[in-house]
Amino acid sequence: MSEYRITLESGESFMAKQGELLLDAALRQGVTINHSCRNGTCRTCLFEIKEGSVTQEGEEICMISQQERENGRRLLCMSTANSDAVLGKLQRRKRASEGSAVE
């Protein structure tokens, strides 16, 4: 069965088996990822996929919009990897009053 290396921006990494939920994999290996509901509804585990391919499972029940998914965001408690991946924290968007659209 394939296993993928998932690396966080902090440099920490963990292995995720094919089909394994990324949050479960991280917690199993003692890697701390901020989380709460573990069912895709609280958005605490929202990350940006910097590299690699990650599938958002249960799209219809998860609190994540299509636009966010298209922008490479995933809720890790309900996501699985299809390759090695690098995950980053969300970048705060600049407010309209602060000038340019994206920080």
């Binding site: 509901c37 609280c42 705060r92």
Partner: peptide, 24 residues
């Protein structure tokens, strides 16, 4: 808190016409 986060996101967004940026 898990369920409150869902409520907060859902209903604030509802009042803002679904605009994520406005919510942020």
């Amino acid at each position: 808190e898990s369920i409150h986060l869902q409520y907060g996101y859902k209903w604030c967004l509802h009042r803002l016409g679904g605009d994520n940026d406005k919510l942020e």
